[in-house]
Structure formats: structure tokens, C-alpha cells
Simulated assay, not measured.
Amino acid sequence: MLNPEVAPGPFTDLDRFVFESWGYLVIPDVLSADEAAECYDASQRLHAARDREFGQIGRGYETESCLERLIDHPAVLPKVRGLFGDRFILQASWNTMQPAHGGVGGWHQDGSSAYNFNQVGYPVPLIQLRASFLLTDQTEPGTGNMELIPGSHRSQVPLPPDIRTNRGDVPIGHVICAPIGSVLLFHNGVWHRTYRHDGERDRYTAHYVYSPPWVRPADRFTNSEAFLERTTPMCRALMGEFDRPDAPYGASYEPLPFE
């Protein structure tokens, strides 16, 4: 099956071409099976108090060290840097659960329903770059995959309302089939949905959303002081902890502490 697969690590000219063309990349072999299993167990703990239905929980990195390590994963962060430059933040981290035998989700673009990103300009600007760590095997369709419409971040027209209302299929939908431990990195403007899950085991995915430093965080009103004290300088910077946040996010905002 055709996938826009790229190598982990440095963001290459070919990576940029593929991303600009399709709106997303698939990075295989980011997590080992053991690392993915550790993150899966952590995800189960996060969702333990919830009803067993589709949903998401933020800030899991504050209590689960294995999820904290994904914030600046060396296989993924260079791709984010290649697209955003040296100044960006972790705008949100969401851990999602799709129960076994769950149906398809609704088609949507990421952003804010209070003021949709397509109102900012055309093409839809890159304001949220999502890295989705697959914690279950999704090499076959019907395993809680993500389905995306390639290149739809550049469409001048929205997906028809009847398709969205009825959660209908589209002839150019691309169901991402990738092994456990892969990462899907995609543009907020790409139309996408959760595909059906026919399996017997609940599906968990760890999402990390990166944005320019002036975007308001979505999973928190403030950062946990306890987390900031114990985490790494890079993760602290990615939380948006910089001086004079009321300044125009240029001269006063230091680049991330890359080596």
C-alpha cells in the first residue's frame, strides 16, 4: 500500500516535498515494541477512570515518564524543526482511546471551532503540526487507523456537508496502515477521521501537537510547576516557558535549546 514513508531524524528536501504535496508523513520504527507497550500501559492508566468509549485526555506527560520522553523524540523533533524553524511550542498533548469494535469518526480539520484556521488565509496555514505515535499494530485496515485525504490541506473547497454529516466514504480517502511504533505527522488542514476498529483490543494513540509560540496551549491553562522543575531544558522550553510572553514573540523569545 502506498504510504508517504520517510526516514526518522533529519528533515530532508524530499521530506518537505512529500509533506507539501500530501500534507502528512509516516515515520516507521520510531518506537520499539517494548516502548510502545510501555506507552500503551500508561495510556490505560490515564483512561482508567473514564467510561469505555472514544475520548482523549491531555497532559499525560506530567505523570507518565514514557509519554514525557516522546515530547522531543529524536526521530520526530527534527521534522518539526524543519517545518517550524527554531521557535515553536508543544501546544497540546492528547492521548486518545478508541474502543474495540468502534465505528468511524467524523471528518474534520484540526483547529479551533471558535475561529477556524481556514479563516486565516488560503491555503490553510500550518498552525498545528500533529505527531501521532501508534501504540497498536495498524498494518491492516479496520484496526483503528487514521484515514486522511491526501493534499486536502490545499483544497479551495471544504468537504461536502452531507459527507461530514453522514460520515460517508470518499474515493480518495487514504487509510494509514503502519506497524506499531510508527508516527504519523500531519498538517492541521488535512481532512481526516478515525477509521473503524474491528479488533478485540482497545486502540490508544499518543498525540503531540506543535505550534508557533504565540498559539495558546489547548491541553492546559498553566504548566505544572512540579513538571517544569523535573523535566529537561528542552521540554521546559517546549512548554512555552519563556520571558515576557506579552512581547511580540520575536526578540524576547529565545530559540529552543538545540545542541
Rank of each mutant, 00 (worst) to 15 (best):
G142R: 04
G106H: 11
D86R: 13
G106A: 13
T136V: 00
Q119A: 15
W94A: 04
G142C: 05
T139I: 08
F117M: 08
A100T: 00
Y40F: 15
I71T: 08
R50K: 14
R130K: 09
T165S: 07
T143V: 05
F54W: 15
N95R: 07
L90Y: 06
N118F: 14
D110A: 15
V80L: 12
L148W: 02
S113M: 14
P141G: 06
E64K: 00
S155H: 13
V120E: 13
D72C: 12
S93F: 05
L77F: 14
F88L: 11
V124T: 14
N95D: 09
P125S: 13
C39M: 12
T96W: 00
D162T: 05
V104D: 04
P150T: 06
G144I: 01
I127S: 10
G82W: 08
P123L: 10
A42Q: 06
Q156R: 15
N95E: 11
P158A: 07
G58Q: 07
S155D: 14
L129E: 01
F88T: 05
S65P: 03
G106F: 11
L90D: 03
G168L: 10
Q119S: 13
T139L: 06
A37Y: 03
R130W: 07
E147W: 02
W107H: 05
A100K: 06
I163S: 01
P78T: 11
P74C: 03
P99Y: 00
Q156C: 10
Y115N: 13
G105A: 02
G106Y: 10
G144E: 01
R130H: 09
F117L: 14
S112V: 12
A48I: 10
F133P: 01
M97E: 05
A75P: 08
I57A: 11
G82T: 09
A48P: 03
D72E: 12
P160R: 02
R87H: 15
I149V: 13
L148D: 01
H108A: 07
R81Q: 15
T165M: 01
S65F: 03
R81Y: 09
G60H: 03
S113C: 13
V124N: 12
W94C: 01
S132R: 00
T139A: 09
D162A: 10
G168V: 01
S43K: 07
Q98M: 08
A42K: 04
F88Q: 10
C66L: 01
L83Y: 12
L90F: 08
R50C: 15
Y122T: 13
F84Y: 15
R130T: 12
H73P: 11
R81I: 08
